[in-house]
Design a protein around this nucleic acid. Structure first.
Length: 786
DNA sequence: CACGCTCTGCCTGCG
DNA sequence: GCAGAGCGTG
């Protein structure tokens, strides 16, 4: 064998020994540091490990594995020594190999984009450990798309007309803007409610469509034309307020990089390596961003799993994964199919479910962990019984298997489900934490105080101005506000500036003193911002605005709000302690960009409850999946829309694959939701799991009167109504979700939902010919057909 | 302009 | 079941 060849072989064998905890595919991904690379990583296939090892590898060795170069002074003896070093300690092997590092980048040339801030921090932590350095000294850029983009925009946003202190608007802010715009444009908010308009605007931004382009693209559709007008006015408002929404953060960064050559050149040359996690959940704008950032060095690695794509509803496009190899021609593709997380029972169930999807790459996970516990499927009476089942199981497993509370996770479809379970856990003394739902920073009192702080930071923020100008009450009403707004608009200044100069406007004569007092107070906050510690500034705002006095005056009923406001101050103190240079804008940004899951603390010994969406990327020894009923999961909408159904099925796949050892699924006979009782059959997803993997635990109880076989659709009573035994009335036939029915005029249809409404029942029926109708059971004279 | 009452609509997932 | 909008009154 040629000498050089012997050297290469020995070198590579040593790398393989160094990474002997990885499987061959994982190692291939680590070694391949150059050129575009797509890693299709199944659930639990160790992709985070691969990401961390790969970054550490490139920083330490660069392209050493694949490089054909051999240092000029390598001797025969050295190669022989390499060949004999295989059995050495890994640390020794690692340091031997350092001599062959090739073209290794400094840490700051590596950009890693993750789905949550928490994932980014964990990655940095593990990376520091891997490299044996202090975490603070590691300057790899790691963050979410949003945090990375905000950082770029803060630095160069002025190039595209964004002032440095721009504000980030959340969903609630967006809604308010749309409402205001509708009023301006005299558009009926019943016809165009924000919840219908905002997703359209959001999708436009996901695909980099400006208001002008949007208007040009929609043809003659009246609705869309109106939305185009709203979109344009909405953007104008944001611009006036020097604010961006979440979608703007990505879109504007792409525009910045695309249109401003200097900025593009700077980042393209800086980022020699770009890595993106959870690539299946990226949208078109994020793809464009990835392409731009990696456009010079072309060392882009993306990791994803098409089966875990669960964010289509907010614009994610699976095409990014499917077409990666066309977008980047010389891309290499590596599949990771060995699952290290779950037992084979759990994995088999997950595989069986996902196989029902048509549109997928096709990939089958396997595990070496044979067998395991069967998946428990239990039917219980109602959501309280569901909670009791969960809490009893937890207690039992804590007792018999010595598990910790933090081993358990309850994953549900929607936040509304948490309440009933929470109540039971609390009653039985099971420690738990709920992620999501009404977040701390979404509470009214917190948003109010934050609005003051935002206004201090960005005086153009008219939205926040309007929120707090009369909170607490300052006798400034709607009429005055309209006047201020008109002046601000005609003069092209901020509403707060109008207040400052209030005495010079005739229209504001009567309220001028109050307005000027308010403006002076805000000005004093701005001055004090320079000298006060952050937490002291917060205290000043809470006290001087009269907000605290207001809450105190409200007494008992506002005690909790007062506590929350106090907690906000402690958050500021925390922030000061964790950041050497604690600024107001830094704090506001962190609050805007942090997600619930970022606050998930693994070390607290408590059961964790969250949505299935939030659980993506996490794993737990024991997982509970409550509410597995058609209509809940899959949701009503998914039952009638094929694409939607496939997306939910992927969500089911994600949920199942979170479990390492044990999986419990429950469904209820009757569910109280939004004030009415629903009777939904077992989720079709559960039926897709082979029965031999299941351990069915049907709760033993008095059998219910069955009406017409099949699932029991009887609807009894509504909210608060005493649930009487069903001996009375019901001369009318009752139906369940999924039943096929016949209507006199509408013809044949399928029951989509069943809801009790007083003594009657509201059915939503999708008819074969006339679409979906809502019908009252007593009136509609529906007949069941088989 | 503030307050309190009634009524309506909500009803997925999220950085 | 609840929050927010809308309306009428002091």
């Amino acid at each position: 064998m040629e000498f050089r060849e012997r050297f290469q072989k020995a070198k590579r064998a040593l790398f393989d020994a160094l990474y002997d905890t990885l499987n061959p595919e994982q190692r291939a991904a680590v070694y391949q540091v150059n050129d575009p690379l797509l890693v299709l990583a199944g659930a639990g296939s160790g992709k985070t490990t691969v990401l961390v090892k790969r970054i550490a590898h490139m920083i330490r060795y660069g392209n050493a594995y694949h490089s054909a170069r051999m240092p000029a002074d390598v001797s025969e003896a050295e190669v022989t020594a390499l060949e004999g070093a295989l059995s050495y300690d890994k640390e020794i092997i690692a340091s031997i190999l350092e001599r062959y590092r090739e073209d290794a980048p400094p840490a700051w040339a590596v950009l890693a984009i993750t789905f949550t801030n928490k994932a980014a921090n964990e990655m940095k932590e593990r990376l520091a450990k891997e490299l044996g350095v202090e975490e603070g000294t590691l300057d790899v850029w790691a963050g979410t798309f949003h945090s990375v983009c905000v950082r770029i925009l803060r630095r160069y946003g002025e190039e595209i007309g964004l002032l440095r202190n721009f504000t980030i608007y959340d969903a609630d802010d967006q809604k308010r803007i749309v409402k205001a715009v509708l009023k301006d444009l005299n558009i009926d908010d019943k016809m165009f409610p924000p919840r219908a308009v905002l997703p359209v605007i959001s999708r436009a931004k996901d695909t980099m469509t400006t208001p002008v382009e949007f208007a040009a693209s929609i043809g003659n559709d009246y609705r869309m034309k109106q939305i185009a007008k709203i979109y344009e006015a909405y953007q104008k408002r944001l611009k006036e307020a020097n604010a961006v929404d979440f979608d703007d953060i990505i879109m504007k960064t792409v525009m910045l990089l695309r249109d401003v050559e200097d900025v593009r050149n700077y980042y393209q040359r800086r980022f020699r390596y770009v890595l993106i996690d959870e690539y299946q959940d990226t949208n078109a704008a994020q793809f464009e961003l990835a392409r731009l950032l990696s456009g010079y060095h072309r060392n882009l690695m993306v990791v994803g799993d098409d089966d875990q794509s669960i964010y289509k509803f907010r614009g994610a496009t699976i095409e990014n994964i499917l077409h990666f190899d066309t977008a980047f021609e010389d891309a290499r593709v590596i599949k990771l199919e060995q699952n290290y997380r779950s037992t084979s029972n759990i994995l088999a169930a997950a595989n069986a479910v996902i196989e029902h999807n048509d549109t997928r790459h096709g990939k089958k996970l396997w595990t070496a962990k044979e067998g395991g516990h069967k998946i428990v499927l239990a039917e219980v009476d109602d959501q309280t019984a569901e909670g009791v089942f969960i809490s009893e199981k937890i207690m039992q497993l804590v007792r018999t298997e010595g598990r910790k509370f933090s081993d358990f996770a309850v994953l549900y479809r929607m936040n509304a489900q948490s309440n009933a379970i929470e109540k039971v856990l609390a009653r039985s003394g099971v420690p738990y934490r709920v992620l999501g739902g009404t977040r701390f920073y979404e509470r009214k009192e917190i948003k109010d105080i934050m609005a003051y702080l935002c206004l201090v930071n960005n005086p153009s923020d008219d939205l926040r101005f309007e929120r707090i100008i009369n909170e607490p009450k300052r006798k400034i009403g709607a009429t005055t506000l309209t006047a201020i707004r008109d002046i601000a608009l005609t003069e092209g200044i901020a509403m707060l500036t109008v207040c400052e100069r209030a005495s010079s406007y005739k229209a504001l004569e009567r309220v001028a003193p109050r307005l000027m007092e308010f403006a002076a107070m805000m000005e004093s906050f701005r001055e004090r911002q320079e000298i006060l510690a952050l937490s002291d500034l917060f205290r000043a705002v809470i006290d001087d605005t009269g907000y605290r006095a207001m809450l105190v005056a409200e007494g008992e009923e506002s005690a909790e709000r007062l506590e929350n406001v106090e907690e906000l101050i402690s958050n500021a103190v925390d922030y000061e302690e964790n950041n050497d240079n604690a600024t107001l804008s830094g704090f506001l940004e962190e609050v805007a960009l942090v997600s619930d899951i970022d606050n998930y603390d693994k070390d607290a010994d408590a059961v964790v409850m969250m949505t299935m969406h939030s659980a993506k990327g996490l794993e737990f020894p024991v997982v509970f999946l409550p509410g597995l009923e058609n209509g809940m999961f899959p949701s009503m909408a998914a039952l009638t829309d094929h694409n939607e159904l496939e997306e939910e099925r992927r969500l089911m796949y994600v949920a199942i694959t979170r479990a390492r050892e044990r999986l419990f699924m429950t469904h209820v006979k009757e569910r109280l939701l939004y004030g009415s009782t629903q009777y939904n059959p077992l989720s079709r997803f559960v039926k897709e799991i082979p029965p031999l993997l299941l351990d069915k635990k049907d709760e033993r109880e008095a059998p219910r009167a069955r009406v017409s076989g099949g699932y029991q659709p009887t609807v009894i009573g509504g909210i608060g109504g005493p649930r009487k035994p069903e001996k009375t009335k019901t001369p009318v036939e009752v139906f369940a979700v999924g039943d096929c029915v016949q209507h006199q005029t509408f013809g044949r249809g399928t029951v989509l939902s069943v809801r009790s409404l007083g003594s009657d029942t509201l059915y939503e029926v999708m008819f074969d010919t006339v679409g979906t109708k809502k019908l009252m059971g007593n009136m509609a004279k529906l007949k069941k057909v088989e």
